[in-house]
Design a binder for these strands. Structure first.
Lengths: 121, 121
DNA sequence: CGGCATCCCACTAGATACTG
DNA sequence: CAGTATCTAGTGGGATGCCG
């Protein structure tokens, strides 16, 4: 892979999907086979129903999940990842790997007190 | 890699970094060896100086870049990726791969007109 | 159960002008 | 050159209540 100038633009479309609150956690849940609205809502607690709907709609629009309605009372709806949706997995795997390798060194806000001095050459 | 329940929480720290406007494009620029403030600003045009500063400060706080000041007039500052920063590359590589494989199928907003009917079982 | 409609607020980031 | 200061606008997301 080349990290040349053309790269950023090409990757931007995926950012529209990932760059919103809850989205990545939501995708994790879908990967884990949690496909119903209420189930997702519980696992992502305290997400609001509006936000969850918004996210699922975006994934639907982008062709990453399908929405299947099983009529009846009570209502039953399932969200399934498409091939493109499942194809996101390596990205998450890479995030997971990074976290294991470097996550421990991540400074937290609570560490801010001990400001690092800037380097001066 | 297991996509079990514990996964999402562990990956969240990295989201604090990536989930803000410009951040991913900024990291691309840093990967490409563009390390000076003005240079980054031009390449990320029309980013505002305030926003660029905010992003660089966050990366600094999290230990992903170092800031080096070369005194003199005119001022000269360089931002360099740390090992942890460079370690993010596989994540971007995975995004790049996904884009090549599935990006073409991504629906754009302009396609919304041709609404897909929902599946009903 | 699985939503949608409405209202509202907090926060983000852009614009602009100025400085060491 | 590399920022800071200030102000404002826009939006994302939460709360709440109703509906098929």
């Amino acid at each position: 892979m080349e990290m040349d100038q053309s790269c950023p633009g090409k990757v931007e479309p995926i950012l529209e999907i990932l760059d919103s609150k809850w989205m990545i956690l939501l995708l994790f849940e879908l990967f884990n086979g949690n496909r119903r609205f209420g189930e997702l809502r519980r696992r992502l607690h305290p997400i609001s129903p509006k936000t969850l709907t918004d996210r699922l709609r975006l994934l639907e629009e982008k062709g990453l999940v399908t929405r299947t309605l099983y009529p009846g009372v009570p209502l039953h709806v399932e969200y399934d990842l498409t091939a493109a949706g499942k194809g996101l997995q390596p990205i998450f795997a890479a995030m997971w790997t990074w976290t294991q390798e470097y996550g421990a060194y991540l400074r937290k806000d609570s560490d801010k007190a001990e400001e690092e001095g800037e380097k001066v050459m």
